[in-house]
Design a protein around this nucleic acid. Structure first.
Lengths: 342, 342
DNA sequence: TTGAAAGCGTTACCAA
DNA sequence: TTGGTAACGCTTTCAA
């Protein structure tokens, strides 16, 4: 069923039918009622492409995912993120499209997306320092919102978590318990968020005048395996740490395994604090000893990104909206005082 | 840059330019070269909507996700699934669109997607028994491939894992070790895959004439929490099982925690076999003791679904292609013989 | 308040 | 081998 057919059935011009359906005020209530009834009856829905062509808008939001991060992106974090956003889009009649691309072809992908006019705006994720994608999007004039921040430029819209603060607090939490050697098990420090987390960790140590030991600071792709290997390594050190701050729940699972294998009990022999952006697989009211976690809701971030993006699509030329969310501190049962050690 | 502008620059008609770009044979090599050069130079990309309108194809594949399954879908499994597929789409110039919808409005969403002509085909996931979505998609004439199967009808394209076999084998594996009371910790048995897994488990027990005890068979949403609670419950039973088959890795993490808290060692005091569709966060060559796992690659399934879908979009009226993948059996180090018990 | 017609950027048909 | 033109299905301008 298309407009032409519908208007013929009704014996009214396409113009009027279109106007009635789109809520133009100049349509008489009588015809509007007629038209709406018929539209419902025949389940008429305007052809997306035709409408888009006529209006110059595609009503589509793009997400570009680099293939290289297949282990990183299509994980619970990304799922939560896009789920939070999709809801907002849906309400305003926008759809979501995902494009997978080579890691080094992201810029090109954005360019093409724009050239083909297939999206009205995009969300950019996982920025690096001085991320080139930002300048390209700016040059293209394609509306975009960044999830995260890219140190280096400042005039773009973003939603980020206060990673620095979250990690400073997490580290302080352990220092307050009396720990003096606290390890850092961080995500890939090519990414901006991991750099900030590191800063927070270092800041907390420096504030107390504690010595920095890069030998107990680790950074890599956030996998269970990396958590396991790193914790195993930590435990064999001669002057071994008594606590650690971890950059994701999945790494913590690996770390926990390593502790278990070495007969160490969490909170007794070794304390950890985990930061995770999602923790979505842990339902509320969980009996899980989350140890001590700082958690940020990536779903919330996704929703905020979506709202800002739709707003700037509809009225551009706003000055950058920049939102920094505070991570929530969840104190569980398993982080005890510093064990006596060495 | 659009066709008109490009053709004016070249001093050639739009028709010819379009033909050159689309590889029509009747274009002279000279003009084709000219056109291609100019297209590259100006980064001309045909407007998706205009092309779609003219050709009647949208070059879009739809994924409809029910909100209710926010804990279920936007998880590693879904991520892997869509990542595998997106690659195939990309190669053939298709894009992917995701629509989030209320759980009970999925049928409506498919209908609208079709009415708006915004997709050429869809992938359907997580079928129930006699899933109504299948009959609706058939009625609409919208090409679709199901990831999984829906007992009840048979004339549709699908890619599924042999869940029955995987679980029969997993159970037999434990029975072969001497276990006689093997528990089942399954996913939500409203879903077809979980029903099949249950069948496989029961089959293995029946084949040996063992008694079925529904008191040690559990089914719910697959979360760590459920794994923890269930295992805890199992361990307090007076005639407690000595082994269990688990329906996902995330539940196994919870189960492992329960075992640890009760001082039981996996493979010594209690054996488990895990089935998981993804295990993507466990890199290859992992030192992780996957215990014993049967694993199926959901990425592979995603790719196959994508290939079939593109094929039936291009030439419909094929008889149903139905692929059943065998899960891989990964034997780790931690599943020991049946512990002496009671 | 309604309608005719132009226009959005392609592809595809028919002539040349 | 090339070009003019209709058609895709909608919105929007202009007239009535």
């Amino acid at each position: 069923m298309n407009l032409k057919e519908l208007s013929q059935i009704l014996g009214i011009s396409q113009t009027t039918v279109s106007r009635a359906l789109n809520g133009y005020p100049e349509v008489s209530e009588k015809t509007r009622a007629l038209v709406n009834a018929a539209a419902t009856q025949y389940n008429y829905q305007p052809n997306t492409k035709a409408r888009g062509l006529a209006t110059g808008k595609s009503k589509m939001i793009g997400y570009v995912l680099p293939k290289a991060s297949q282990n990183e992106m299509p994980n619970p974090v990304f799922g939560d993120f896009i789920a939070g956003a999709a809801q907002t889009y849906g309400k305003q009649g926008y759809d979501t499209t995902i494009t997978l691309t080579e890691n080094d072809k992201q810029a090109e992908t954005y360019r093409n997306l724009h050239a083909k006019r297939s999206v009205d705006g995009v969300i950019m994720q996982a920025p690096k320092e001085n991320d080139e994608r930002i300048s390209i999007l700016k040059k293209l004039g394609l509306p975009f919102v960044v999830h995260g921040r890219s140190t280096g430029s400042n005039d773009y819209h973003f939603v980020d978590v206060n990673n620095t603060h979250a990690f400073a607090r997490a580290t302080n939490f352990l220092l307050d318990l009396g720990h003096r050697r606290v390890a850092l098990i961080n995500g890939d420090e090519n990414l901006d968020f991991a750099i900030r987390r590191r800063h927070g960790y270092l800041q907390a140590l420096e504030d107390r005048g504690l010595e920095i030991d890069t030998g107990i600071m680790f950074s890599s792709e956030m996998t269970e395996e990396f958590g396991y290997r790193t914790m195993t390594k930590l435990l064999t050190m001669q002057s071994r740490p008594t606590a650690a701050v971890l950059s994701s729940y999945i790494m913590a699972i690996g770390a926990r395994r390593a502790l278990g294998e070495n007969g160490l009990r969490i909170g007794k022999d070794f304390s950890i604090v985990i930061h995770d952006d999602a923790l979505s697989y842990l339902p509320n009211g969980s009996t899980h000893p989350v140890f001590t976690a700082t958690r940020s809701s990536v779903g919330e971030a996704g929703r905020l990104c979506a709202e800002i993006l739709l707003d700037i699509i509809q009225n551009p030329e706003q000055k950058p909206r920049q939102i920094i969310l505070e991570a929530e501190l969840v104190v569980g049962s398993s982080t005890g005082p510093a064990p006596k050690h060495d």
